[in-house]
Design a protein around this nucleic acid. Structure first.
Lengths: 218, 218
DNA sequence: ACCTGAACACCGTTCAAGT
DNA sequence: ACCTGAACACCGTTCAAGT
């Protein structure tokens, strides 16, 4: 049953299939689904948990930056395969089965010396990444419209100068075709992840200074 | 007409009111809306543009970090007043009227020396902030359920140790009541914004070193 | 040109009736 | 206990008919 829902999600996205379509995929009446799993939100939750279980865990001996670098790359790859799941996951928060990931993730940060900020940093990294993927999912739903809107803006900004013209030039190359746009999305995600890791690194310096000052003072 | 839609959005959230409710608010038949504005997506877009027009612009003489610090605080305050708008805004990308903000925003970054990375940094900051607000909006829709889920996780993680227990302790204090949860959200947003600005600062160092190296070499 | 009422094609959910 | 068919209360959108 969750199998079928996951299959439909891969094909159409989790918010696109209907209870009726799911029932048809299973060859049963709609009411059967309510009898066995409950309403739509419960099936969605089950699919989300199944996707989470599919995210590979980086080797525990990696340095924290490599650990999260590979982890967040894998999260995007798996999540984009199930459109719309990232959004439900980040809204639901820690679902059943997420402990498999959260535990090792925070361990790596504690090991690196993030101390009492480990949980906040973990939330910062995972929330930011999942939110960005959720937005990418929704943008992918209407790629033609997105191209069209980008071109409208470019036309509208014709002849302006200053910072806005810089944005216009930036948009113009990316609005050329859909492949360009998707490549730009992938690059942008990578860029954001690297920036988040930069920020975490800066924070690590602060925490370490604070800790050493505390052990120094009598 | 957009007035009425904005009013309903403040009260219920942009994805909660229906065309029927909007028609009733205006005292007309539903078809009138289609005749004047077009479908639901066009009204949503008009509301989004109206909300964007309402975001105050920081003083242009502020340092880049203060400029974006106050800007992103104002964005959250205005956006939370119109639940669901942040999500539509970040998905639509630069809507009509956003130039009023984008221009000065990139100008501040160019002035600070971000050079060819100014646009990417602008996108990084605004996308991250809006994505996080969009998630907060959706979490606010079901606060009771969120509390309940958090408590379930806490119970489920009873007796574990390692990184997961740290997350459990963190969740436990926040899952006490709804006010605590909302305060935690506000703090978390602030924290994420500061981290993004840290990351931008680190990037500024890289860009400056690259630029000075280029002007040095003959 | 503008507005109405009614319809169309959906949707999630429920429930009496069957086996 | 499990499944069916039909209904209920919605939804966005369309369209002939009125003024």
């Amino acid at each position: 049953m969750v199998d079928a829902a996951a299959r439909l999600t891969v094909r159409q996205g989790i918010d696109e299939w209907t209870i009726r379509a799911l029932a048809q995929e299973l060859g049963v009446a709609q009411a059967v689904i309510y009898h066995h799993v409950g309403g739509r939100s419960q099936i969605v939750r089950a699919v989300v948990e199944r996707v989470v279980a599919q995210i590979p865990l980086p080797a525990p001996d990696l340095q924290w930056r490599e650990w999260f670098g590979t982890f967040l790359t894998d999260v995007r790859r798996v999540a984009l395969h199930y459109p719309g799941v990232a959004r439900h996951l980040v809204i639901l928060g820690p679902v059943a089965g997420a402990g498999r990931i959260i535990g090792p993730g925070i361990d790596v940060l504690l090991e690196a010396g993030f101390a009492d900020e480990a949980v906040t940093i973990y939330n910062y990294l995972s929330n930011t990444a999942l939110s960005l993927i959720a937005v990418e999912d929704e943008r992918n739903k209407d790629q033609e419209g997105r191209l069209e809107r980008a071109r409208e803006i470019v036309d509208l900004a014709h002849g302006v100068d200053g910072g806005l013209s810089t944005m216009k030039d930036w948009l113009e190359v990316r609005a050329e075709n859909i492949d360009q746009l998707r490549a730009s999305d992938a690059y942008f995600y990578r860029y954001c992840v690297e920036r988040c890791l930069d920020a975490a690194k800066a924070r690590l310096g602060v925490v370490r200074r604070r800790t050493s000052r505390m052990t120094e003072s009598p």
